[in-house]
Design a binder for these strands. Sequence first.
DNA 1: TCTGGGGTCCTTCAGCTC
DNA 2: TCTGGAGCTGAAGGACCC
Length: 431
Amino acid sequence: MSRSQITRGARLTQADVAPHADGRRDDAGCPVLHVDMDAFYASCELRSRPDLVGLPVIVGGDGSRGVVTAATYEARRYGIHSAMPMSRAKRLCPDVVILPPDFALYAEVSAGVMAVFRDVTPLVEPLSLDEAFLDVSGAIRRLGPPAVIAEDIRSRVHDEQGITCSVGVASTKFVAKLASTRAKPDGLLVVPADRVVSFLHPLPVGELWGVGEKTEQALLRLGLATVGDVAHTPVDTLVRALGHAAGTHLAALAWGRDPRPVEVPEGEKSIGNEETFPRDVDDPEVVRRELLRLSEKVASRLRQQGYAGRTVVLKVRFADFSTISRSRTLRSPTDVGRDIYGTARDLFEALGLQRARLRLVGVRVEGLVDVDEAPRQMMLDEPELGWREAEQAVDRAGARFGRGSVRPARLLRTGEDDGFGGAPVAPRPRG
DNA sequence: TCTGGGGTCCTTCAGCTC
DNA sequence: TCTGGAGCTGAAGGACCC
């Protein structure tokens, strides 16, 4: 690694504590790296739009109900942040540049970044497209101490993918994640193993992993404002306020105890799709058509990834934002859109809604198993070649002619965006 | 201000079996 | 035969994360 690479970003920092008197390396005992891309979606877009570098740019749907998916640091200076309604972002910064999301691009860049990580260690645990934990304990002899490995990763991501990232180096996942957040943007922060407590205790409770708005309010009601306050509170008190899992978990985190190892994920646990209507809907036929579209989409993703699932979950959000879900477990796992739709529709009908105004519907399939290991329940009247084979044929047609080139007749409506991409096209007549 | 979409995990409760 | 408790599973909802 060149000197220029090491100094790029000029933010090789450590927790603000006194150095070791005996000359030990500060990253000794810190094999966990948390790597987080800076404003990932926006950074991907700026690679092909250098004219926008330095301007407030946000990525997100520009519809009436869109939210900000990512914001450059220039946009954040106006108070814009992710998950903020687009309408508000535009009010805060009328000149903000809005770009529609291109998830295929982000997936491609993410694959390149993850390849860099796996070049360093096989122990990579991705958390999302733009961040991952790495356990580099097995790479230290080959590549050097964790801080050097971290800088090398930052340089390679920058040189190969043209975006910047921040890295936290620590003894546990939780502290590494906090460190990368505090190193942003384009920085590196090492929290030495024996300074974890002094690093953690001054932080506000909201920084604890798993503490969102509700839990933060609950903790503040107990008079607990900092991580140190939580650390010095009896576990029983936390358990009473937050439940067993959250209470014991936070008590451990507040002392820097996080036994979770970096793990290569085994696979998905559920696959689902949901959609917010552009305007609230009270026509049951529109809802049924949307359920069919979502079910087909979920089934297609299941087949693509080689899964079948046993539990179908229907999600309904009403105009007042209240949300309910209903689920049904099938006799055997399925990856057939027809089955998923039939179950989702039954669940919807069972709600007995009398023209309630709906904001969103969603379909999710849980209890995933490898499709080759899934027992198939043949119906007495089921033909040998059934819906599954038909939908597999649709998958093949989609791969050849474009996704959505063949679809259920109910979803064929000229000019209607059904989310399959492209204009609706009727299947070519056979023969 | 007015709240997307994709996920995971946890808690609570009800029903069932032993 | 009846009853109560333990343990399991499924269902529903909530909180959280990115």
